[in-house]
Amino acid sequence: MGVTQKDYDYDEVVKFTQSGGELDQALTSLQDNLSKLYDKIKECEPLYHGNGSSSSIYACYQNLYDKLGTMDKKDTMWFNANVCRQLIDKMYDNAKRNQDNDTLY
C-alpha cells in the first residue's frame, strides 16, 4: 500500500473553510454586519434628512448606499464580500476533494 504525500494539511483547511470554520465564520460575520449597517442607515434617515432628492443630505446617503452596493455591482462591499465567499468555497471544495480521495486508500 502506497503512502500518500500530502501537499498540505487538507484536514485543517477543510476545518478552517467549512461552514462554522474560522475563515467561513469571519466572512459570515462580515456579511451579517453589512446587513446591520444598512439597517442602521435606514433607521437614521427618518431622524435626519433633507428636503427632496436634490438635497445634499440625500446625495450623501446615496453615496453610502452606492458603496455598500450589491453582489452584482463591481467595486462595492457586497460584491467583494461575495467574491471572497466564492474563493473560500473553492478552497473548501478543493481540500475536501483531496481529503475524500485520500481516504480511498
Partner: peptide, 21 residues
C-alpha cells in the same frame, strides 16, 4: 458545502434613500 446564510435579498437589492418633503 452547506451554504452560509446571509440576507440574500438585501445583498442583491438596489439601495437608495427615501425622499422626504
Amino acid at each position: 458545502k452547506e451554504v452560509a446564510s446571509y440576507n440574500q435579498a438585501e445583498a442583491t437589492a438596489e439601495k437608495e434613500p427615501k425622499v422626504f418633503q
